[in-house]
Amino acid sequence: MNRAIAAAERPGAATPAIEVSDLTVAYRERPVLWDVDLSVPSGILMAIVGPNGAGKTTLMKAILGLIRPAAGRVLVHGRPGGEQRRLVAYVPQRGSVDWDFPTTVLDVVTMGTYGALGWVRRPGRRERERALAAIAKVGMQDFVGRQISQLSGGQQQRVFLARALAQDAQVFCMDEPFQGVDARTERAIVALLQDLRAAGRTVVVVHHDLQTVPEYFDWVTLLNVRRIASGPVADVFTERNLRLAYGGRVAFLARDPGSGPDPATSEGGRGRA
């Protein structure tokens, strides 16, 4: 928590990285997000957690400017949707990428520079160098010419992180990056995200494993159509908030459901990691 607060109080970090106000999103007039307010300081590692259908991915898409909200707005570093483009980057869900697409590591990472290039202009030597630098930052310099299906799950994630770096983004959005990767890869990705945070970037991750939230993240948003709570993990990641977000379905957090703490008396009790 302390680090997060420190980041929030750091001069220059006065404008929040992400500011969401009164955000309502509806698909076919059915609300997916109701009146969500959120203020995320820059330089933190934030998890979005909540049950299935809570609108986690929708919130992320709204931050990315991929969907038009029915009401409310999203500011990224103080700038409204449309203008904040290129400040936000995303790492797609593994399942949504066509891994057999004829493209190499360098090619994918170079795509990060397309935003700054604008229409028609082709990437040149400068873009190539920027891409190579981003690839080096994630330690993938030995795989530059590889087709993307010939990489391990962790390497694939790193390629897309490098693309975000090449984009020179300030805010990184990832949707369930740990899905289908082994434990070692998961730790490697977390280390990478922590490096990004150390470099002053903001990282937002849709996450489903409650056990690892306190270990990996310093900030958390609990979501269930409405915002249940958002803030430093130490303050917000409480059993009470989890019960609000998940209903009765957080019993698995208690070591022994039979003798677990009575929800009524365990205000502020932490979910165990």
């Binding site: 990315l64 400017g65 991929l66 449309g82 483009r85 290129r86 936000v88 980057a89 995303y90 797609p92 949504s96 990428v97 066509d98 697409f101 493209t103 994918v108 795509m111 397309y114 935003g115 693309r163 984009q167």
Partner: peptide, 11 residues
């Protein structure tokens, strides 16, 4: 063709 969401994010 590769990543339409990313194209949209880039504007």
């Amino acid at each position: 063709a590769f990543d339409p969401d990313f194209a949209a994010i880039l504007g």
